[in-house]
Amino acid sequence: MVGGSPADVADASVFIEAWSKKVVHCGAVGAGDATKSINNVLNSAHLLLATEGMLALKKYGVQPSTALEAINGGSGMSLQTTRLPDNVLSRKFAYGFALGLMRKDCKIAGGLVASQTPSATLIPRVVDLLGEAEAAFGPDADYTQIAQLLEDRAGVTLG
C-alpha cells in the first residue's frame, strides 16, 4: 500500500518489492498509509467481532473450537476466525504484531474516519477498545490480546 506520484511509485517499486509480495498504488502521497490504517482497523474489528461472537456461543453451550470449525467452512469465515484457534483459544496471544503499533495505526484510521465520516460509530469504538487493551496489557503485548479484554469483561475465556 503506497502513495505518491506514478513515477515515484514506479521508481520505489524496485526497492519495495524486495520485502513485499504485492505493491498497490493507492493514490497521492499519504494514501498508502491511510489505506494501511483502515486495513488494520478492519483487522482489529474482525478479531473483536469474532471474539464477541465466540463468547456468546460459549455461554450458550457451544465450544468455540466447534463453532469455528463450522464458521470457517461458511460465509462468516475471516482471516481472524482462522487465527482464533492458534492465538486466542491456545492462550498463546502470539501472532507477532504489537498492540501498541496496532493501536497507533487504528488511531490514524479513527482520525481519517472522523474527518471524512463524522457520524461513524464502529471504527471509533474499535479504537477505544484498542486503547483499553493497551492500558491493560501494555504496548508490547500481542494485538490478539484485544480478545482477552472482551473475555475479561465477559468473565469467560475461550481457551
Rank of each mutant, 00 (worst) to 15 (best):
F137N: 04
M54Q: 06
I38R: 08
T82M: 09
H46T: 12
V41E: 02
L129K: 09
P85H: 08
D142Q: 10
D11V: 11
G30Q: 10
V14K: 14
D86K: 14
K58H: 12
V23P: 00
E69N: 14
G73M: 08
K58I: 05
T35K: 07
L42R: 05
A135R: 14
M77L: 09
L57Q: 04
G73W: 02
G100W: 03
A7L: 07
C106I: 02
L47D: 01
T81Q: 03
G110N: 11
S78D: 04
Q145N: 03
A70T: 09
T51W: 06
Q63F: 04
H25C: 01
Q116S: 12
L57S: 12
P118W: 10
K22D: 00
G73I: 01
V2A: 13
T117D: 03
S37C: 11
A70P: 01
L112W: 05
G111H: 05
A50T: 12
A141S: 11
S65E: 13
M54Y: 00
P124D: 04
A28I: 07
K92M: 01
A136H: 06
P85T: 07
V2M: 09
G111S: 13
P118H: 10
T144D: 10
E17Q: 12
T81N: 08
V9A: 08
C106P: 03
K59C: 02
G27A: 13
I38N: 06
A109Q: 06
I38V: 15
D86H: 11
D8M: 12
M54R: 02
L150F: 05
I71N: 04
S13P: 00
G30K: 12
G73A: 15
T82V: 10
A136R: 15
K22V: 01
T35Y: 13
C106W: 00
A45D: 02
N72H: 08
T81H: 06
A45N: 03
V62C: 11
A120K: 13
G74P: 00
C26P: 01
S37A: 15
E52R: 11
T51K: 10
I108Q: 11
V14D: 10
M54L: 12
G159H: 10
K22C: 00
L68Y: 04
S65D: 13
G159L: 09
N43D: 00
P85Y: 03
G4Q: 11
G155S: 07
T121M: 11
A10G: 07
L48E: 03
L129Y: 06
I146C: 08
Y95K: 08
A7R: 14
S78Y: 08
L84K: 10
V14M: 06
S119D: 13
S115G: 15
R103M: 02
A114Y: 12
L55T: 07
N72P: 05
S119P: 00
V23Y: 02
V14Q: 13
